[in-house]
Simulated assay, not measured.
Amino acid sequence: MTLIFDGHNDVLTRILNSGGVDAAKAFLTGGKGHIDVPKARAGGFGGGFFAIWIPTENTLDDDFEAMKAEKYDIGLPQPVGVKNAVQIAMEEAAILVRLEEMGALKICLAAADIAACLESGTMAAIMHMEGAEAIDAELHALEVFYRAGLRSLGPVWSRPTIFGAGVPFRFPGSPDTGPGLTEHGAKLVRRCNALRIMIDLSHITEKGFWDVARLSDAPLVATHSNAHALCPHVRNLTDKQLAAIAESDGMVGVNFAASFLREDGRMLSDVPLEQMLRHFDHLIGHLGEDRVGFGSDFDGAVVPRAIKDASGLPNLIEAMRGHGYDDALLAKLCHGNWLRVLEKTWGG
């Protein structure tokens, strides 16, 4: 079975909402979510980026319902105060630590750690932060989270932070939806570069993208984004952005969220796998076969019915093989490209 290392999931938030640290044990036995140990084993899910994310006041279910329409423009959620965000972020980080204590996964700090996990069959986890609400202006929390294992960070989710602006859920639209990085954001990018924390560009505005491209000395990476040319959602990347990512030797993880895949931008699960393959083809055409991977957004989105959850990943692999992707290319897309870009970003 071809093992997959994936660019994004929201398992930690799902467990938080299910009861917090004490609910982590259900990850071992299975449940309603997209990812757990039984589903991972069944589908060849070898690990990925486990996101620390601060939930909104309203559930995303309301937004997903609105995104079933032919057109939508959902405003940016209100900013979250750093003190409240730190409390939630600490609990989600503790959930990840508990999962490691239970033997469900291993928190990885180097690309070699991930490779060893894939070899041994242990689920590999990167501690990632989706939106830096829990990071203060002085970046003290960044240093502490780094010591706890944080190795990847998106400055914003789809709401503003002191570091920059995120894109709303809007279709159709351009990713040029607002301002870029603030002075605090520029400081954050520089410190992440110094610590070799990967910077995730999946939710940032187009102006913010170009600010990071100008400031950062690391490969440009979007962990879970798709091609704007195929689905003109504001969350997707333009061909000009893809060219910059290719020039930096970065990469993009293909997002399984229906609204970022479908040409009509609707959050409906009847997405044929052929549509996903069109995004893979487009990204490979613009980035090259060494700079594309998976970025499922499992447990944080409505995904194609043909996949359903991590146990359905072999259905996608079979479709990719039928599409003409050979074993060498599949190995790169499924995990090799993530290992390459992480080693380049983090160092040996």
Rank of each mutant, 00 (worst) to 15 (best):
I4M: 13
L3V: 14
F298T: 07
E247I: 03
R214M: 05
N226G: 01
H233D: 12
A218V: 00
P314G: 05
K240S: 13
H233V: 09
L220V: 02
L60N: 04
F163M: 09
H323I: 03
G265V: 13
A227Q: 06
G347Y: 07
L99R: 03
H34V: 07
V167I: 14
F169A: 11
G250H: 08
E101N: 13
I74D: 02
D63S: 07
D297H: 06
A137M: 05
N9Y: 07
L28M: 14
P160D: 15
G103M: 12
T56I: 01
E247V: 06
G348F: 07
G47Y: 01
S311A: 15
L181G: 06
M320H: 07
A132T: 07
K187W: 00
L16R: 06
A115G: 02
I284K: 01
L287S: 06
T122G: 00
A112P: 00
L60Y: 10
D299C: 05
M198F: 05
M123D: 00
V189Y: 08
G250C: 12
F209K: 07
H286P: 00
C117L: 02
L220G: 03
W338R: 00
S311V: 04
I162Y: 01
N236A: 14
F50C: 03
E70Q: 08
R14N: 09
L277W: 11
P219Q: 12
I204S: 06
G312K: 02
A258N: 06
A125M: 00
L230S: 06
K39L: 03
G250D: 14
A227Y: 06
S202K: 10
N337A: 04
V234D: 03
P219H: 11
E247A: 14
I114N: 00
G166Q: 11
R41K: 15
P55E: 03
S259A: 14
A165F: 03
G250F: 11
D22L: 10
T223K: 02
W157R: 01
F163N: 08
R305M: 13
G295H: 11
F298N: 02
E143H: 15
A246V: 08
Q241F: 11
V86H: 01
G253F: 14
H140G: 08
P232T: 08
G293H: 04
T59Y: 01
A141F: 15
M127V: 07
A328S: 13
A213F: 08
K207N: 08
R190W: 02
G75P: 04
P77L: 06
L3K: 13
A213H: 10
A23F: 14
F27M: 02
N315G: 00
F45L: 10
I135C: 05
T2D: 06
G44E: 09
A222L: 04
R191N: 00
H140Q: 14
K39S: 02
D217G: 14
E119H: 12
A51E: 10
A319W: 07
D61L: 12
A104P: 09
